[in-house]
Design a protein around this nucleic acid. Sequence first.
DNA 1: AATTGTATTATGTATGACATTATAAAGGTA
DNA 2: TACCTTTATAATGTCATACATAATACAATT
Lengths: 236, 236
Amino acid sequence: MTLTTFRENVELIDTSSLVDKVEANLVKLLQERKLKVGDAIPKELELSETLGVSRTVIREALIRLRVIGLIETKKKKGAVITSPDVFSILSKSMNPYILDQDTLREMFEIRLALEIGMADFIFQRIRPSDIVELRRIVESEPIVTEDQIFNIEHEIAFHGKLYEITGNENMKKFQKMLLPIFDYVHNSGLLKKTVNVKKFVSHKGIVDVIENGSPELLRNAMRNHLESHFERIFEK
Amino acid sequence: MTLTTFRENVELIDTSSLVDKVEANLVKLLQERKLKVGDAIPKELELSETLGVSRTVIREALIRLRVIGLIETKKKKGAVITSPDVFSILSKSMNPYILDQDTLREMFEIRLALEIGMADFIFQRIRPSDIVELRRIVESEPIVTEDQIFNIEHEIAFHGKLYEITGNENMKKFQKMLLPIFDYVHNSGLLKKTVNVKKFVSHKGIVDVIENGSPELLRNAMRNHLESHFERIFEK
DNA sequence: AATTGTATTATGTATGACATTATAAAGGTA
DNA sequence: TACCTTTATAATGTCATACATAATACAATT
């Protein structure tokens, strides 16, 4: 029997640990809708007895579920199913010193795509007070010097406000999750090339488009505003 | 002293558990760059002795780090720092039966924004063979019937290919992560309204724009293509 | 009725033992 | 020497038991 035919005929042995099995077991209960949000799951000792494994194993499985936000545990109360806070979970692993360069760049790209693509949501959900706030932010914009292309805090304030206007909490959390990366990217010199500031749409320009334009115009304006970032990403 | 002034003057006591502290401790080592990818971290027993807590506590902290992808552990070898696979981590918690309606809608919105905003990356990185593949996918497109507005598998194939063309692995993982949601959204009747198919840009139209157009045109085409989704989101 | 004390219960932590397995070392054969 | 096999070893994985801690419910007290 050749190796190939062997591989086709033999069935993979299960290398998963007990914890893996218990975890899968519990997750399956969720998939099959035996359990839904708010439901309590059995106590550790009950699970231990029911499933025939030690409490140690049960605990590790529960810890895993807790880390990914599927359950919450409290002393004396036990654990209940929860609706996970998707992007907040990621924040912890969003450590720029740990993520490799490719991932950092890709996350940055995702940000660019999102900010261009969110135009429709901005127009759909913006309120007059938002315009006022945007104007206020723009007015307090620090002067652009040669050394410092832009002030990061101000950037975050402005773009953060845009995320907020979308009314999409998760989108905003996504931005928040990326903040440490921005900070890093701008401090690390990764993208620190002198940039052609001229002819790019300014923050003020963006606000004007939001006030008097259309989603389509906003996408183009935003694309132009972000041009320097695109340039640096694409030039290599 | 009033309650208000009391609250202002008293400092919050630390309610974090031992595991919380150990975890924070280890993460801090990463932040301060004492540890970087590939580095091994001390054995459980060493940590236990060094930090003066039981192995149980150490193990739970390590489990947490493992779940969020910061370390990998192997028998006999111990644990090493790894660069987390950001979006894949989320896949587990991306359970449509657990996520609440708002989150589901918001994730769907993020998808729409991304697909519109990714135009530049598609143009920047597309290769001739990609066009061929897109054409092939479009040609095998099933006939649109009244009952079934579109074939989900085909949708995934086409849009998945677009994600792939962006050359952004994480963006692709993001799409993959959302698949169970699409499936759910389309099966659950959540968005199942009859839709005006006429005058919308088809998949074929998208490919034409990719071949002969520009990022700007692609954004508009994609926005139009996704119009039915936007309609259903915005109408309520 | 509202507050304070008390018992209970489930999770959190500690300890010690053994199981499992991937690596490294030792040994044997060509 | 080089390669394969066996054996030892060191780390994580699992088990069992005990106790600590904290949140709840309920009783007691004012």
